[in-house]
Structures are given as structure tokens and as C-alpha cells.
Design a protein around this nucleic acid. Structure first.
Lengths: 331, 331
DNA sequence: ATGAAAGCGCTAACAT
DNA sequence: ATGTTAGCGCTTTCAT
């Protein structure tokens, strides 16, 4: 018989189950959580009652008693960005596997919002919060003041007293740029944020090869930014034969701008980008890109967050892997 | 002074605040939640104490007492899909605005998972769950059995006893296809799932114009599916001058396959797609697409979910809007 | 192996 | 305007 949606007949509590099974409240707990030995026959009766009554434990009560909600929070700049979206989904999967639910909040790169959300999450008794973006010592203190355990999700822990994992963006960018150099390109541009570690990697690779830096297009991580930089790049294409782009999202917009300018890729300008998102595989041409180990990032961050263990040197700095596709000139 | 991350000095409770401010527990509640009049001076003292002690209300306790967690759940097939990602973010924004937090779960189109997650969410005392995908009468009963209020997030409520909003996919597909017909194309293919309402819309538009249906490529909503169908389409391009694609994600992979086959877009094959995602704006060429009113969808779904009000006829079926760009042949 | 009971932090009805 | 208190549903110590 179909009742109205959401019209529960009344909450079934553990006490109802106990009464129905003819045992005390405690035994129900023991049966369900294994806190103490229970006679098989009794346990069966309890489980029977649970099923018949449609009992669902009240997580709020449990959280209140235990001081732990079995939830974690994740604050990302924008869960719509393919990279963050994938990271969030991975965190959700890892967390759910451990019995945790995930609260995702969009922080839009605002420090104030980030702190505000951290408070909210604190009040919701989350067992920890994963944070993204740049932080300084001041932030560390502020975050700690909330009393919630936290860790950085995409940043290695360079700062004293902060946990976190991250991908070695500098090394990734260096590898990608070096690959371009291996193809024989000599005038290699950069697209991305110059404050980002990838900029340093690009620069380092060039220096290693004794090449001077190509033009730099300092743009935010948005599609519009990518498109604009792509247009600028197209305008400057006489002085450029390849480009390192700091993300796939940027990269596909760059591709669009280059096509529009009727430039051949990789013929006129070769491209490598960063992230290894699904989008990069099906762009035209497919993007050679540095794949971030999203799963591993999520798994390690969650583990660190939940177990509060300081990672060893090589545990907190993961490596990206270069995926060779067409945009760089590989066959 | 920087304490260890997550090392709270001990939980400050409402009682601490009360003692510090020299009032009773109740007055703290009154001040914070406005449950009763409080003398201005007293209120100030309380707020002072809250600040000094760094007090954060315990949401678990509140949820237990009130029977409401101020959280909602959202179950989507895949939060990584740009459309769902945007929808989730919108839901998050709308919900947060009303003081609700959002738990996002990936259901991967599995009915079993969906039900399992609904249970989990029920036990977490969420105030409602937004669901996606196809449902039948049986599902309605099963969902209702969980006792959680729920509503469909992207599906109009055709089924008795179910709430929900949705976009008129059929009308959207019809509009898009008709636009193609307006351009003079006569052999228009379909890419997507034939069980999807968009298929009916495509068919209807063709019928209206007295045109026979072009080739149909029945593929799931994945990039790989889009790419494969694009290749098949390219192989059949002599018999086709345009195509309706059921999503942008599919659409950009189709574009890639067509480019690879050295077909001109829209010259050889014109394309319209569906969703209006950011990706569609920066593809090459930019995609003419039916923009789904994501914000509105999220806002209405949340409102319905929280207020349990049956929507009026035109409130539960929203309209998409055709965005004219280059892939259809518009200048 | 099972039961009784305290108490997690909060709200609200009731008393003052 | 403010204080007292019961109880939300659960876990767990301590008895039995």
C-alpha cells in the first residue's frame, strides 16, 4: 500500500525493537554493533524484529553519544570543475567505504567562506574536514581554532602543524615541458597562474635544457580564461611552437581558440596540459596531459584526516603521470 | 598559539557558556535561537561568552532533540558528469541558503544502490532526499517505506504520490530538431538513449515537418559512447546532414569523432546538443544546445522537498531554452 | 548472556 | 525575563 511520500507512520526506535524481541535496549545495541556477546537465538530474534519493524538506527543520537558523526566535510573551490568534481567523487567513495558520509561545500577560493564553512562543519560534528587551495601560518591557527581535525586535500604539508597530501605539480609540469622539448620544440609558452607551482616546473624544465622562457599568459583557472589566453597565444604564434597549459579545462578552451585561428595542433602549436580529466581524452586533438592520481590523493587524504597521522616524506607528495596522446605531436 | 591540528582543548558546551555568562542554559538557547524574549544586557553577556569561549552549538544534539538534521541528501548517477555536477552545486547553494547542508551520493544508475543510500540517509535523519533517474510505481512504494521525504530532481511527477520537478526534455529536443529543420537540413540523425524522452521529441519534430527519421545511434550517456556514435555517424555521413545529440558531454565527443573523420561542422554535418554546460560554450565549434534551467530546477526541487507541496502543472515541468551558437550553422 | 541506568547537548513546556 | 527539568535515541559501564 502506497503511503504519501515522506509520511512515515512514526519513528521506530531501538526501544520498540527491544520490546518486540523481548529483550532489553542494550541487547539490541550488542547485536547490532557487536559490543558484547549475544546468544545466537537472541540475536536472531532481534534481527527479525529489526526487519519486521523496519528499524533504522538514529545517527544523530549515536553521534551525540559518541561525539562523532561519521561524516567528513570537503571544501573545494568549485565542485563543477572537472578536477574537483572527480576528486570529490573519489573522496565520497573512499569515505563511504569506511562508513563516512561526505558534505561537499563550494568555497570559491574565498578565505572567509572557507573559515565560515569550517565553523558550520564543526557545529555539525564532522570528524574532519578536507581543505583545498593555498594556506599560510595564519590560516593554520584559524583552522585549528575551530577544533575540527582538518587536512589539505591537494597540497603537501609544507607548513608546520598541518596535515595533507598533494601532487608534485612542479615535477609534473617539468616532465610535461621536457616531453615537449624532447619533441624538438624550442619556444614553449606557459598558460596558467604564475603563482602556481606548475609555473616553476615549466621554468625549471626550460632552464635545464638551456632554453629561454617563451611567452607567459597569466590567467585564472576558468574556461573563459583559457579561451582568452588561447587567442593571445594564437596572435603570438610566430614566436611559439608549443605550450604548456596548467589544466585540461584551460586546455580545451585553448584548443578551441587555436582552431578558430586556423592553427594546426600539434603542427603549428603543440600542446600539453594537466589533470588527465575524461574531457582531455575526447578533445580534438586528444590532449597529452599529466594525470593526477585522484584516487590515491583522496584515499591518502582521508586516511590522514581520520587517523591523524603525519605522513612520511614520500607519502604526502604524490607523482602525476604523463599520458601521451596527440596534442604534443606523438603519433 | 598554534595547537596541533584537530587537537581541541575540550568541547565547549552550552552549559559552559551559561555558567560563564551567569545565566541558565535556557537563556543561552533563547538568545541564540530567539525562542523567548531576553533582556538586551543579558543577551549581550551571552553573546560575549559565546565569543570568548568559542562555543559552537552541537548540531547532533539539536538534531536529536528536534528530529531534524537540517541536512538533505542528493543521489545522482555520477557527480562527475558536468550536468549533474552543476545540478549538485546548485542544490548545495540553494540548500545552504536555507540552512541545510547537502550529502551527495553517487548512485551509478543502480536501483539497488539508490535504495541502499536512501536507507543510509534515512538513518542520518536527513530532512529529505532528492533522487534522479527513472522510477516506477514499485520504486515509489519502496522509497516511501524508508520514511524519508523525497522528491525527484530531474523528473516531472507523472507517478501518483511522487513529488518532483523536471525539464520538458521532449519539448527541448523538438525545439532543437526543429531549429535544425529551419536551417534546411532534411536528414537528421539521433544520438542518445532511445528510451529517453528526447528521442520522442526528435521524432515528433521530424514528423511535424513531414520528414522521415534519420539514423539512430542508441548509446549510453558516456564520453566513450559519444565518441563511438560519432564515428558511426561519420561513417554514415553521406546519408546525414545534421544530428541531434542528447547531451553536451556526448556532443563534444561526437565533435571529436567528426573532426577525426575530417568532416566539417556544420558544413558536412550540423550538430545541436543538450544541457548548456560550460563545456559546450568552449568546444570547437561552439555547440548550439538546449540549456537546462539548472538553478530553477534545484530551487524548485528543494522547495518542494522541504515544504512537501504538490506542484501545480506548470511548476513541475520546466522549459529548456535553445542557445544558438555555431555548430548548427548559425553565424 | 542480559538488564538497568546514566548521560551525551540541546529545546521547550512549565514554573517562577 | 529567567530558571528548572524532562526527554530526544543511543552506547556503555556496572550489575546480575
Amino acid at each position: 500500500m502506497a503511503t504519501m511520500p515522506g509520511h512515515s507512520s512514526r519513528k521506530v526506535t531501538r526501544k520498540d525493537v527491544a520490546r518486540y524481541a523481548g529483550v532489553s535496549d542494550a541487547v539490541v545495541s550488542y547485536t547490532l554493533n557487536g559490543g558484547a556477546p549475544v546468544a545466537p537465538a537472541t540475536a536472531d530474534r532481534v534481527r527479525q524484529a529489526v526487519r519486521l519493524l523496519g528499524y533504522t538506527p538514529n545517527a544523530s543520537a549515536r553521534a551525540l553519544k559518541l561525539g562523532s558523526s561519521n561524516m567528513i566535510g570537503v571544501i573545494v573551490p568549485d565542485s563543477t570543475n572537472p578536477f574537483w568534481a572527480e576528486l570529490c567523487r573519489s573522496v565520497e567513495a573512499v569515505a563511504r567505504d569506511k562508513g563516512y558520509a561526505v558534505l561537499v561545500l563550494n568555497g570559491y577560493d574565498s578565505n572567509a567562506l572557507r573559515l565560515e564553512y569550517l565553523q558550520t562543519l564543526a557545529s555539525r560534528q564532522v570528524d574532519g574536514v578536507l581543505l583545498t587551495g593555498e594556506i599560510d601560518e595564519l590560516d593554520v591557527d584559524r583552522f585549528n581554532a575551530t577544533g575540527v581535525p582538518w587536512a589539505m586535500l591537494n597540497q603537501p604539508t609544507t607548513i608546520e602543524g598541518a596535515l595533507g597530501v598533494g601532487v608534485d605539480l612542479t615535477a609534473g609540469a617539468r616532465d610535461a615541458t621536457s616531453h615537449l622539448i624532447g619533441h624538438g620544440y624550442k619556444r614553449i609558452a606557459f598558460i596558467g597562474e604564475v603563482t602556481d607551482p606548475r609555473y616553476a616546473g615549466w621554468l625549471a624544465s626550460l632552464a635545464e635544457a638551456g632554453l629561454g622562457p617563451g611567452p607567459v599568459f597569466d590567467v585564472p583557472f576558468t574556461r573563459a580564461g583559457g579561451y582568452a589566453s588561447g587567442q593571445a597565444l594564437a596572435a603570438a604564434h610566430d614566436a611559439v611552437d608549443a605550450v604548456f597549459v596548467s589544466s585540461d579545462m584551460l586546455g580545451s578552451a585553448v584548443l578551441r581558440a587555436l582552431h578558430e585561428a586556423e592553427l594546426a595542433i600539434p603542427g603549428d602549436i603543440a600542446v600539453v596540459s594537466f589533470d588527465g580529466s575524461p574531457e582531455s581524452e575526447f578533445s580534438w586533438p586528444s590532449l597529452t596531459t599529466v594525470r593526477q592520481p585522484v584516487q590515491e590523493l583522496a584515499a591518502k587524504a582521508v586516511a590522514q584526516l581520520l587517523h591523524r597521522e603525519q605522513p612520511t616524506e614520500d607519502e604526502h607528495l604524490l607523482k602525476g603521470t604523463l599520458i601521451l596522446r596527440q596534442s604534443c605531436g606523438c603519433p
